[in-house]
Structure formats: C-alpha cells, structure tokens
Amino acid sequence: MKLINYFSDPTEAVLTTSFVLNKTDQITRVYHHQEDGMWEFISERAVEESDYKVISMEEILNIDEGLLSLSDMEPGFFAYRKEPNVAFEIKIIEE
C-alpha cells in the first residue's frame, strides 16, 4: 500500500490564525476538511473570521515540523493534542 503525502505541494494554501503566526499560540488542532480538502491549523482559542490567515503549506511546516506526522491524514479527519511535542490523536470529523 502506497502512503499518500497530502503535504507534497509546498505552495498549497492552508488556513491558520494570526495567533499561530505570531507564535502567541501553539498548533493543537488540525482539520483536513472533507468538502474542499482545505487544511486548517489552529489552537484551542476561539477565533473570529478576521483572525484567520491564508499561508502556504511550507510556511506552516516551518512553524511546526511536528505536523509532518499528519501528512497522510485523509480529508474528513481532524487531529488534536493537549500541548506541543505530544503526539496527535486523529478522529473523524463529526458533522
């Protein structure tokens, strides 16, 4: 079985927040949305639409190389961890 690497395009647009970008927050939640295949890398903080930023996959991996462990997470799933440097738990997104 060949593993799929969903992170293979470094220029792919992904969502994150200004809090992650300015390193106020660590990434603790990752969503790979089913409907559009978009990736979302956020923290526990409640965010407004204006807090979201679009950056490249390469930029988000430069912020947290530990995200590479999620490169084969299929659309329709999300991953979470309680703190950085801890393994992610992966679950299906309940609609």
Rank of each mutant, 00 (worst) to 15 (best):
Q26G: 06
D72Y: 13
R45H: 08
E74N: 14
E83T: 13
K82I: 09
H32M: 04
T28V: 10
E49V: 13
S50H: 07
I42L: 09
K82D: 14
S69V: 13
I63L: 14
E40F: 01
T16R: 04
K91W: 00
M38F: 12
F19P: 03
F7R: 08
I92S: 12
E89K: 14
E35T: 13
T17M: 04
N62H: 12
E58Y: 05
G37P: 03
Y80F: 13
F77I: 05
N5E: 09
Q34V: 03
M38Y: 06
D51N: 05
I4H: 14
M57F: 00
Q26A: 11
I42P: 02
L61A: 02
E40K: 06
E59V: 01
V14T: 03
D72N: 15
A13W: 07
N85T: 07
V54F: 08
A46Q: 12
S56A: 02
M57R: 05
S71P: 03
I42C: 05
T11Q: 14
D64L: 00
V86H: 15
F77Q: 04
E65W: 03
S56M: 03
L70E: 09
L21N: 07
F77V: 03
T17H: 08
A13N: 09
V14P: 07
D9G: 06
I60P: 01
L68F: 09
P75W: 04
E49G: 05
E49L: 11
G76F: 01
K91L: 11
K53Y: 03
I55Q: 01
M57P: 01
S8Q: 14
M57A: 00
T11E: 15
W39I: 02
S50R: 06
E40A: 09
E12R: 15
T28P: 00
E35G: 08
V30C: 12
T28L: 11
G76C: 04
S56D: 02
N5F: 08
F19D: 10
F77T: 07
E58L: 12
A46E: 13
G37S: 04
R45A: 06
A13R: 15
K53P: 00
T16E: 11
H33D: 10
L21S: 01
L67R: 03
L21P: 01
N85S: 09
V20S: 00
K23E: 11
K91V: 08
L15T: 06
I4Y: 10
D64S: 03
Q34F: 12
N5H: 11
D51S: 09
M1N: 11
I90H: 10
P84T: 10
L61R: 07
L67H: 00
E44W: 10
D72G: 12
K23D: 02
I55T: 01
F41Q: 08
A79M: 05
M38V: 11
H33W: 13
L70C: 13
E49Y: 10
A87T: 10
N85L: 11
Q26R: 05
D72T: 14
L21Q: 07
R81A: 09
M1G: 15
H33S: 06
S56W: 02
M73R: 04
I4S: 13
L70R: 12
L61Q: 11
T11F: 14
K23N: 09
I27D: 02
H32N: 06
F78A: 13
R81Y: 05
I90S: 08
E40R: 06
K53Q: 15
N62F: 11
M1Y: 10
L21M: 12
V14M: 01
T28G: 02
E74R: 14
F77P: 04
K53L: 06
